[in-house]
Each structure stands twice: as structure tokens, then as C-alpha cells.
Amino acid sequence: MKILVCVKQVYVPGTDVTIDHSSGWIQYNPTGFRLNSYDEYALEEALLIKERIADTRVHAVSIGPGRTEVAIRRAMEIGADEGIQIRYEKEGYLSPYQTASLISSYAKEKQYDLIMTGVTAEDDMQMQTGQMIAGTLNYPYASSVIKLEMKTEHLVYVERECDAMRRECVELPMPCVLTIQSGINKPRYPALSNVLRTKQQKLMEIPAQDLVMPEAREKIIKVFLPETTARGVFLQGSAKEKAVELLRILHEKAFL
């Protein structure tokens, strides 16, 4: 089997998010990048399949400027056999449709049986890319997968996690696209052997211009911090004083 896991290097801001007014986008602090945690669940699911089905190859692909190499290599250290970097140098926002088009255009002739992504990216939280890859390649798909079983060589059974604690049980033939929800497995840490192997390996680099990259269909005109809408009372004083005050409130409201 051949599995493609789409991974994203996300920016996870610390307590301070600053907007760079010249670019209109957030100001990146170089230490704030990491592999999207939802993608780690997708990768783990691919590796679990690889453990069960002989001759399975797992590829990790990501789009972005040079810095994204770190996330791809992290995926390889965790266990992906190969890393593919679609080089798109411009910093800032890339729409899900553009992302999906680039990945589809790369994956089209490569005979992947399964294409997996995390259910969402922690930074822009669109929940679109996987479904759009499926739409572009005309593959069946399921999003928010919380259980996955290979039924036969060509058929997958999944449970989609739905709202209000429901699950939709779905069967779909491969090739297909699955977006993976957190909690489906326990993602592993890199093993030393994989770390050493990755060091020896080169990434496959593809310039975005060599692939199909349509215009964005929507644009972000502005990012902004939400107004502080705290409607509550901030307790004041030292930790001890706040503790006493909180107990007073709880007592007054008859909770104690």
C-alpha cells in the first residue's frame, strides 16, 4: 500500500500574538513552529497500517517555504519513509483550495491508496483541505475519523466522530481521503533509528510553480485581535487573597 500523509507546520503563538501591520499577517516568532498535532494522529494511523500490511510505504508531504523542512523531517523521524516538500516561498496565508490543488496535482499520478490529513490545522482551523483534495481528485472521503479498520485490500471502514457523541459508520473503497481526529490513537515519539535514517535522507523538493496552483478564491483582508469581551470580574490580590475571595463568592452563592 501507498499512503500519503499531508502534514502542516503550524504556528502556535505563545501568550502574545502580534500582528505585523506591514504584511497584515501575524508576526512569527521562530520558536513558535511545530508539526500540527492533528497530523500526528494521521501519521500514527498510517504507521499502524504499515505495521499490519506488508510493503506499505508512508510518505509525508508539506507545502511552504524552507522552514517547513523541519516539520517534514519530524514526520520522517516519527516514521514516514519519505518526505516531499512542495516549495512555496511566500510567507503568510495559503488558502485551503490552493493547498488542496497543489497536493492533488502532486498526488494525481502517484497511485496513493490512502491520502490522510489531520481533521484541522491548529492555526487556521479551516477543516477544508482533506475534503477539497477529495473533491479535486474525485475520490470518496470521510472527515473526522475516530476509528479506522482495513476491511479488505481495497475497502476501509471508518467511524466519523459527529457532534453530540454520535458516530457515523462508513465504508469506502480506496483510493480515498481521510481526515483524522485527535484521540484515535496515541502518536508515537521518534525512535532513534528513524532519527538516524532521516539524517541520511534527502527530501524530494518540488517547486510549487511546477504543479497546478490556482488563484485563491477568497482573500483575508485583515487579521485582528478580538476585543476583550471579558464580561466577568477579575479577582484581585495575591493568590491567597484571590482564594479567600473566591471562597467568599462560592459561599455567598450557596455552593459550599
Binding site: 482551523m125 477568497e218 483575508i220 487579521v223 485582528f224
Partner: peptide, 15 residues
């Protein structure tokens, strides 16, 4: 929202 609501984006469709 972006980043779990830490930030918001104003988006305009062009289709």
C-alpha cells in the same frame, strides 16, 4: 476565528 479564537480574520470571497 484563527488559533482557537486568539485572533480573527476578515475574509472576502472573490467568486
Amino acid at each position: 476565528p484563527l488559533f482557537n479564537g486568539r485572533l480573527y480574520a476578515e475574509v472576502v470571497p472573490e467568486t
